[in-house]
Design a protein around this nucleic acid. Structure first.
Lengths: 214, 214
DNA sequence: GTCTATAATTAGATAGAC
DNA sequence: GTCTATCTAATTATAGAC
């Protein structure tokens, strides 16, 4: 593993910043490390250093690395739901096609602003584990079923592209998020995943591909 | 990291299987481990055990974990090129739209049969590293440029969907491969990424989405 | 609640017998 | 070329001072 960070709170000793503040900084630092290097590749020392504190704080505040990871995902999925809700509420005439278009735009927007969720999902999805089983049972299954129901109705109505229901979830998530999940790679290729023109062009193109009858 | 494997060649001692045989078995085992757990998460001990040999064999045959990883990618990318070539050669009238359709079908087919390449790419693309820089320089950049040129011509001809060139590479790869890269997740969701009906439906749907004017 | 010190385990790489 | 034994460094988690 490449060297990354080693600054363990320079100078100040035993600063009490309150429990919620340290917890939030640890979660924010952890979700970035988990996203960049995967669960096994992320070290609790690097996370603590990035949060400006020391490694044993993780076990004090969360009990274990696993529980810290779990709370990172709760945070990220809450933010995703907030983003989707905001996009869907801003629709003038909310019929079914417009709502799905709003969800697609929300997925692209969120992936660009918070690439960490899709990065972690892509790391976890490559092998069975307790973490993956928890993710699927508590957060992924109902989302996949909800999209499948919407897709079936839109296919029947003739507005959706001829994509089978059993592949549409991963096709949509992959098409919407890989550019941002793999942003370090995209930047080396000369692309600009962070540019607002990139994101809006991406969202518009994906919506018109998925819903040609809109 | 979860426990996985611990069977270190039971019984037979110092069996000389020839250098190429052991090398091939190590590469095959390594690419599966790298795909499942990422570079940092994959242990050379687990790789060697899965290949039916011992951990120091990796350094004997490859010099380092990094070089083993590099040779895994050479192997996988060669197989990808073979798959694309086979799909493109089988086209009766090879005009530009038909060739791109063949490439798309090849990407979906290969992702389903050899999910390890896309898994490793998704792991590596989430953070800068020497490995990522090597991947982009020697294997990814020309592929992205080739697709961009094809896409520009097909957009001008009016057969391609209204997707900007700067996002089409990741949109296509993500849409084509996430279902198989994250197959362990998909299976927990009740999907069947390995079924031939899934793969052909996926490929057909993606082609008609990307090339509505075909 | 924060910090230092450290225990217990595991990592990749090397030396040398056969 | 294969195997055992081992070195050094890194990992997560814990004990206890302040």
């Amino acid at each position: 593993m490449e060297a990354r960070l080693a600054t363990p709170v320079p100078g100040r000793d035993r600063v009490n910043r309150g429990t919620t503040d340290t917890r939030h900084r640890l979660i924010e630092a952890a979700l970035v490390e988990f996203a960049a290097h995967g669960y096994d590749g992320a070290s609790t020392r690097a996370i603590a250093a990035s949060a400006g504190t020391h490694q044993p704080q993780i076990n004090y505040h969360f009990g274990s690395k696993h529980e810290l990871w779990r709370q990172c995902l709760e945070r990220l999925l809450t933010e995703l739901d907030d983003t989707i809700a905001a996009h869907v509420q801003g629709i003038s005439r909310p019929d079914e096609p417009a709502v799905l278009a709003g969800i697609v735009r929300a997925l692209v927007t969120f992936a660009s602003r918070r690439p960490e969720l899709n990065r972690i999902m892509m790391h976890e999805g490559t092998a069975p584990s307790d973490r993956l089983a928890w993710l699927v049972d508590t957060h992924l299954a109902w989302r996949q079923r909800d999209l499948a129901r919407r897709w079936n109705r839109l296919r029947d109505a003739g507005v959706a592209a001829p994509v089978p229901v059993n592949v549409v979830h991963h096709l949509l998530i992959g098409a919407a998020s890989l550019l941002y999940a793999n942003a370090p790679e995209a930047r080396l290729l000369g692309l600009e995943p962070d540019a607002s023109t990139t994101v809006t062009g991406h969202a518009n193109g994906l919506v018109s591909m998925l819903l040609p009858g809109l």
